[in-house]
Design a protein around this nucleic acid. Sequence first.
DNA 1: GTCTATATAATGATAGAC
DNA 2: GTCTATCATTATATAGAC
Lengths: 231, 231
Amino acid sequence: MTTTGPDPEDLTARARIRDAAMLHFAEQGFERATIRGIAETAGVSSGLVRHHFGSKQGLRETCDAHLAKMIRKLNDEVRSGQVPDQANPVAAANAMMGPYRGYLARALVEGSAEAVFDQMVELSEEWLAEADEKRPDVPDVDRKARATVGTAMALAIAVLHKHVSRGLGVDLFTPEGDLLLARTLIDVYSHPMLSVEDAAEARAALNRLQPEPPPTDRGARSRQRKEQHHD
Amino acid sequence: MTTTGPDPEDLTARARIRDAAMLHFAEQGFERATIRGIAETAGVSSGLVRHHFGSKQGLRETCDAHLAKMIRKLNDEVRSGQVPDQANPVAAANAMMGPYRGYLARALVEGSAEAVFDQMVELSEEWLAEADEKRPDVPDVDRKARATVGTAMALAIAVLHKHVSRGLGVDLFTPEGDLLLARTLIDVYSHPMLSVEDAAEARAALNRLQPEPPPTDRGARSRQRKEQHHD
DNA sequence: GTCTATATAATGATAGAC
DNA sequence: GTCTATCATTATATAGAC
């Protein structure tokens, strides 16, 4: 429960402002958040914010960079197997992302944090690369496309956490919420919404609408989808 | 392609303002959007906006109500089998939700539109009720929980459409985007991320952390999860 | 129903003192 | 590095004329 221990060399006023900004941006959004409010939370004057970050936009960019850095750090720790609670990856991810999850959700929706999303897609691609080898299935769509949709779905819980909490009946940030979410994700992720027959049928219906190169084309190696524009 | 034909009795200035507001709220968010800008798009003065809706918040609430109404209408049409393009449900949903998808995404993220989300969860529950009968699986989580997570995931594409478009390489609002998204969704939804073995293992690991009532408890009928609080 | 004009409040940005 | 004081802009809300 170290909440991703704050960097030792990071207790300066600048860091406090940045952390306060991420909090305010997360809870109120970029537009609604005010430099004055952020400064107050950080315990400094509004002028100092300007001194360190130049402008509100500059402050946002610093927050984005910090978020990307933290995501990278989290990913490295996961890959190194340093996750303290490997049994419940959801709880582990929540615990480590905790302080930044709100900002991540906001930033993604407001169009910022593109680098973070793309980075998560890349990680998802790496994960999919391993998973694809174990499956005889021949995917008819680009691996990156699947990684993108999968990433978006994985982020849905964070982005819509308020509504998900309401639907689940418990706050996602509580241990009970973590547990219920983990159980639910296990069920959903192991329980395909479409059977192979339904999928084949849906694909066939799609092909009837707009014939596509036959499924012999893997399309999983190089991701040049520009062939679709040759009509 | 009737874009959910605008109600005949709805071409009044009030409706134009509301539609313009949904557009502005969707593209710029509630805070950033201005009454003046909305009025200009609607071709009226800012004073008239105040006259009809009282305040910016009142305008937002009207938009939310209209969105809920449209979702209900869309759902009824889907249930009645009136969907023009049944072969590609994604494209169909996009086409009908098109004008409101952006607003829906914004409203959900900004905490509004709770009724819409809950409504979609209910629809998902109904859908799951049918699907559950065909599957011998005994879900160890509430149906509502699964419906909630499933709904959030389904909405993820709309909420993060900008990032998804970037990852897919095509704009989701174009026909090519619809097609690629449909193919990808078919693959993802028919391709479980967790094998039954992995799922069982993950569940077991979860139970080791916090023992839970044995899986003989269906928990799918009534949704009282308060039993979990008896520790 | 619709418009113009104004009041009031809040904000980001800035300049300069310590 | 940090603060206080101020400027200029902008937006909502309002009042009143047509």
